[in-house]
Design a protein around this nucleic acid. Sequence first.
DNA 1: GCTAATCTATGATTTTTATCAGGTGAGGAT
DNA 2: ATCCTCACCTGATAAAAATCATAGATTAGC
Lengths: 232, 232
Amino acid sequence: MEPPVNCQLCKNHPNSVFNDLSAESLDKISKLKSCVSFKKGQTILQEGARPQGVYCIHKGKLKLFKLGTEGKEQIMRFATAGDMVGYRSILSDEPISASISALDDTYCCYIPKSSFFQVIQDNPKFSLNVLKLSCQELGEAGKMITSLAQKNVKERLAEIFLILRATFGEDEDGFVDIKLTREEIANMVGTATESAIRLISGLRAEGLIETKGRKVKIIDRVALRSEALVFE
Amino acid sequence: MEPPVNCQLCKNHPNSVFNDLSAESLDKISKLKSCVSFKKGQTILQEGARPQGVYCIHKGKLKLFKLGTEGKEQIMRFATAGDMVGYRSILSDEPISASISALDDTYCCYIPKSSFFQVIQDNPKFSLNVLKLSCQELGEAGKMITSLAQKNVKERLAEIFLILRATFGEDEDGFVDIKLTREEIANMVGTATESAIRLISGLRAEGLIETKGRKVKIIDRVALRSEALVFE
DNA sequence: GCTAATCTATGATTTTTATCAGGTGAGGAT
DNA sequence: ATCCTCACCTGATAAAAATCATAGATTAGC
């Protein structure tokens, strides 16, 4: 469960944003990081806080969400093993703009701010990778904005299932490897919980998805993409 | 109208993302850049294109927008004098995710990709500033997502006027210093043009704004903030 | 395994927003 | 100054989505 002390031994390392880091910097981080764990449901960071370090996820799933004016969540995105969170607040020197909580038991490496800045300064390639990551996230945010503005709720829901599958993959039974309440799904789609429930029932009745409790399996991927107005 | 050949003499320089650049790099850019101008309404970059350089705006106003599935625009944000556009596509090595067009006659410095990368490599501080910029944009995008998901159209419209005023400031008569069609306003709010028109009339009838053709003046800022559910 | 709390589901109703249709006014080109 | 086109405006109607209420099913904690 616990991450290895030495980052080079981490199973996520080959695919993480840290993978271009010099051996020296990786050593430095390995020495300065600490390991933290969070229970399912636990809040890691609250919107508005100023984290003093970044978290690199070793194992587990996080949701990043904002609270609207009436306290309802809007889920922005998820982060999984190998992803880094909290970096944006540190780099923009602003309070963190989304809360982060654990969707299941999660193990992270916590890298203090000063170490993180040191590594940024010492590794232009890493800095560029972080920049690249941030730009990619901004592109995803743009898509989400356009969908929220122009697609109807059913279209958006269909799209969310595709995104969930792309993010979390499938378990052995072919179900998307994340369990979310209907409320959480509604909070991604940007709709009322009841509306989400109704439309999930509808997609199920049309044979596009299958559900088993909170698990969702995509049955007709082509039809779902068409429903979501997603064309590659 | 034309930008100065020497970036150090640009009136936007003290406030631009380039202002921490070494004199040497600034010289290099000054030599390698070219000056381009665009007429009002002209498209600078089309979504999906791969720009071969970044644009630093000397004078003028740009809108960055995506087209939805039915060809309707969703305006993501604006860029004005001193802002840089196109950098995200270059850094993430992806096609550009939003089209860019000129809201009025615009003059830019065009910095070729290779020069831009050179400057990024040679100036960690600049790289950090670009990263900071990208992170701030992502924070703004998160706000927009939450508003689209949870606020009603009137609330969003009120918020858009506050954003426009913050972005463009006011002219001598106190009107927000940008003229947008009702359709463009609707394309920011994420609603039908008629709905935008109705609600603009409504805000005007309530005394919160005043319009003169396409110009908008905020009359009761406190009430508008309240309407927009914006609390500092 | 049991129980309480929470989630899921559905029907009815209300509210919000989009669409359709038609008229007026403003701005730009000649 | 005139004309034409497009933008703005408004009313009516339809569609989409939210809200309210209630019942049944599932999950989490002990």
